[in-house]
Design a protein around this nucleic acid. Structure first.
Lengths: 203, 203, 203, 203
DNA sequence: GATGAATGAGGATTCATTCAT
DNA sequence: TATGAATGAATCCTCATTCAT
């Protein structure tokens, strides 16, 4: 390696590359412990270039969170919203599938970041709430309502908060983030919960 | 004024006061954003004194987490372990009571700190797991087992992971930490879950 | 659109346009606070082009100062040097006129820049001294001498330093630069001074 | 020099020492080119200590300017304000004395800094105006008025702006700051102006 | 010529930690 | 014990300058 060119210029999407590197670094170290220099190095660019695209570290953070949410949520939630399945089939199928994927997905990382940094970034929290949480909860609510309409579920099924479906997913997520090495069959956890709820709701 | 009281009003437990102040500050700002100076000011002592009792910021952090766990867990879990109630009564009563308290308790704060800082402090995670999580899960397991022995619960009740009891508590905790301003009846959530599980487990 | 005009509207004098933009920016922000980027934007060119004409920021600065001096001084001093007026008429007329214009002219800006940056640019200071100050002082000296020769002024008029004529102009300039919002009739100041000096010098 | 103690702790007034060092550095390099590190080094302290006393570089700058003004102005202006001299004696004596001192005094440096940085620090400009300029002008005005009352001066003397007295001082100051190596008898300049004005004003 | 993406040295500021008193 | 002045490594961010296109 005699002398590599000092100035690189690539076609690829530099902002996205930087955001990707930033996401990984934030994921590993958290917001405060992440140094812009590390992000840049990871992205294979200079520190200065990072600042060309993201005015401040906070900007970068926000961009990264929104970026992940935007890119991932549709591929996770999207296909859940339009379906021809019966409500029961939906809950047992796509929803469960979705929930099983979340704890290992980048969304889990985002949640960790929101838990840590949320209080300092209320706009991010709102963004996340509206684009992920509210949509997810509403999707569940709709399917339960449809089940009731169709006579699949008892009227009382509507009383359950949709959060109850997601609780084991939440626990699984936190468990993996914190107790990665302690055993827990998280998939089993979520399956049990769905069965529990279906047994209760079914007509 | 030669005859001042010989005994200056000496704070009995400076280390504890510092730890308390530190806990509050870590709770408010997180680990990285907490300045030792603020902790000292809050405790009403000098920065130097903090270093007399806690060698580093990290030491202080660890001490604080363990300290909270030690002081709180027994008052939360303790009275749960010995009881003369039937298993059902226990689950519906003391356990539910306990779970409702957690999301607003210092334990929730500790969990937030572990979610953020855990990866950098595996020993803390282990400590927490052994002293809180494992004990809590075991307690639940025992009561389910006792219920089966006594014929209150079906044999299959043992198949359920005790985590299922705690899932809504986890979700409630995170919800309060992140979405403090979004509505959610967290108590209702936990009650529903207990009913759900009891309906399933009962003979 | 193949038949676009073959001759792109090419700016005739890019270097001059850049220098103009630079002058305005230096005037507003001072040397250190001026960013090449801003200059380029103001000139409507790219940053790179600026560097094509001016090797460094300092080069640009020097070029700008000299440029202003060259372009302005003749229009200010020029017409003062050749005149058929009597010495008194000259001093009361063109010289006063000249002095009144200076505090609001680009020359005042250059002086401000020299006051700030002069110590780091002795060559600029010399350039300015020779092309502006020395010429101005000499012009005054000549007119006083001519007045003496012609018997308009007393012999002792020669003893006065020509700087005395310029002192109120200097004060007016600084006043406007620093105390722009504090009232001061600077024209009146200069008129008084000329009258004062004439009264003293007249035979 | 085997091992000098890392931690110094002196009785002297550290903030003042830092301000002094800062003044010298600002004087030499101007605001922007002054590095806090240099100031600290010059004061014989660490960079961090500077920030203990002055929150930002701008704070330091303001403190320094005000500090110089406060410390110097009274020793310059103070003794001028109360006097038993006749107005003429005062103008020819103490006032002239004062004016001769200014161009070589720290006040000249402050003026240079205000000329450079004033637009970015209007509060400093106001502070300087009120504490130095306005007071100086008023003192002159008072003496002229007193001279008129006493019959020393003609009534028309009041028409002259007091700034006229100060104009050569201003020019001298700027001259020394910018053209330090070019010859000019600045004292002579100021003396001439006083004589000029007295000749005009005297009854 | 002309562009603007890319670089990296430089400088302000913070804060954990030390230690003279 | 107790204090808080003092230190300096660490990090964000800026911007003059370069160079691939």
């Amino acid at each position: 390696m005699p002398n590599q060119p000092k100035y690189q210029r690539r076609k690829e999407d530099r902002p996205q590359e930087i955001a990707d590197a930033a996401f990984k670094t934030f994921a590993e170290k958290g917001y405060a412990a992440t140094r812009i220099d590390d992000v840049a190095k990871r992205a294979g660019v200079s520190k200065g270039l990072t600042y060309l695209y993201y005015k401040t570290k906070e900007d970068l953070f926000k961009a990264v969170v929104k970026n992940v949410v935007i890119r991932r949520v549709d591929s996770l939630i999207g296909n859940v919203e339009s379906t021809e399945l019966s409500s029961e089939e939906f809950l047992r199928g796509p929803l469960l599938e979705f929930m099983k994927k979340v704890p290992g997905s980048p969304i889990a990382i985002v949640i960790r970041l929101l838990i840590s940094e949320g209080p300092r970034h209320p706009d991010l929290v709102n963004y996340y709430y509206e684009n992920v949480v509210a949509r997810g909860l509403e999707a569940i609510r709709q399917f339960v309502a449809r089940g009731v309409e169709r006579g699949e579920f008892r009227r009382e099924a509507l009383d359950h908060q949709p959060h109850l479906f997601l609780a084991p997913m939440m626990l699984s997520m936190i468990w993996r983030l914190v107790f990665a090495d302690k055993p827990l069959d998280t998939d089993q956890l979520m399956e049990s919960q769905v069965e529990l709820l279906l047994a209760e709701m079914k007509a």
